[in-house]
């Protein structure tokens, strides 16, 4: 009797978990379904769950509603530049905070922590004015340069670097290796997991970001994909949901594909970065 009730519980639990999975996955399946429906189907009653004939043409229609190739190019340019710049800047800094002694170190590290906690919603206004003064508002720079220092990355890499034994560094110094050589040849290979976390993080957050490009762009030629997709709603009104969802797929798919293939390492990265 005891065993039977345990089994019932286990089955009930599994069913509940299946429902839970459905709750979090369904909206994305729904997006796919709507993106393939006809104009009639999106406003039919009862609602259409699965389109009779998939309307692949919706994707071509959505793609032609705006300069999406340009948006895509801008998004990728920004992401690649930001990540490259962050790498060059944050690795030496993290090394210095982990392994060197210098006056003002604690104060400076305090500033790094402040930078870590300060959201763009606070700093955007003065930065916007600064960028206007520099007359770079019609370039991608306002979306790249403010992210040059990745405080979270410095924080994370420092943790890794602190675990490297001092003897190793002393030995390298005896071999006449300069600071930069020590950083890139000795320290960096040891911090690979942290590096991939930071890269993954920067990629996801800049690919998805809506606030910063919204406040930093005034013209079409510097806008990014999220802005373009959000603007579809204005050009399409809120009736052509099939076209909007087809456009939305462009934004979701790359992340989704990456997630399907390496959800484990992504989850581990985010769990690690959360609270440490």
């Amino acid at each position: 009797m005891y065993k039977l009730s345990q089994k019932v519980w286990a089955v009930a639990g599994t069913i509940l978990k299946a429902i839970l999975i459905f709750v979090f996955v369904f909206p994305f399946l729904w997006m796919v379904s709507v993106s393939l429906q006809t104009d009639m189907e999106i406003s039919s009653s009862p609602i259409t769950l699965i389109p009779a004939v998939p309307q692949w043409i919706n994707f071509a229609a959505a793609w032609s509603k705006g300069p999406f190739l340009l948006y895509l190019k801008n998004s990728l340019t920004i992401i690649v530049s930001v990540i490259a710049m962050q790498m060059v800047i944050m690795v030496p800094a993290a090394y210095a905070f982990a392994k060197c002694d210098f006056k003002g170190k604690n104060l400076m590290f305090g500033l790094v922590l402040i930078a870590f906690m300060t959201p763009g919603q606070i700093t955007f206004l003065p930065i916007y004015q600064m960028m206007s003064e520099w007359e770079v508002m019609d370039t991608l720079l306002p979306q790249i340069v403010p992210f040059m220092t990745n405080a979270f990355g410095i924080f994370l890499l420092r943790q890794y670097f602190m675990q490297v034994p001092d003897e190793l560094i002393e030995a390298a110094k005896l071999d006449n290796a300069g600071s930069l050589k020590i950083v890139y040849k000795l320290m960096l290979p040891m911090a690979k997991p942290a590096m991939s976390t930071v890269v993954l993080f920067s990629f996801v957050s800049h690919w998805n970001d809506y606030f910063w490009p919204l406040v930093m762009t005034q013209t079409t030629n510097v806008r990014t994909l999220p802005i373009g997709i959000a603007m579809l709603k204005n050009t399409e009104g809120i009736t052509n949901w099939n076209i909007i969802m087809a456009g939305n797929m462009i934004l979701v798919m790359p992340i989704l594909v990456v997630y399907v293939f390496c959800s484990k390492s992504i989850i581990r990265s985010f769990a690690y970065s959360g609270i440490k």
Binding site: V112, P146, T149, V183
Partner: peptide, 13 residues
């Protein structure tokens, strides 16, 4: 080593 990072923080935070 920390100068570029601190410049970024000073300017943008």
């Amino acid at each position: 080593l920390v100068a570029p990072a601190m410049t970024g923080i000073a300017l943008f935070v």
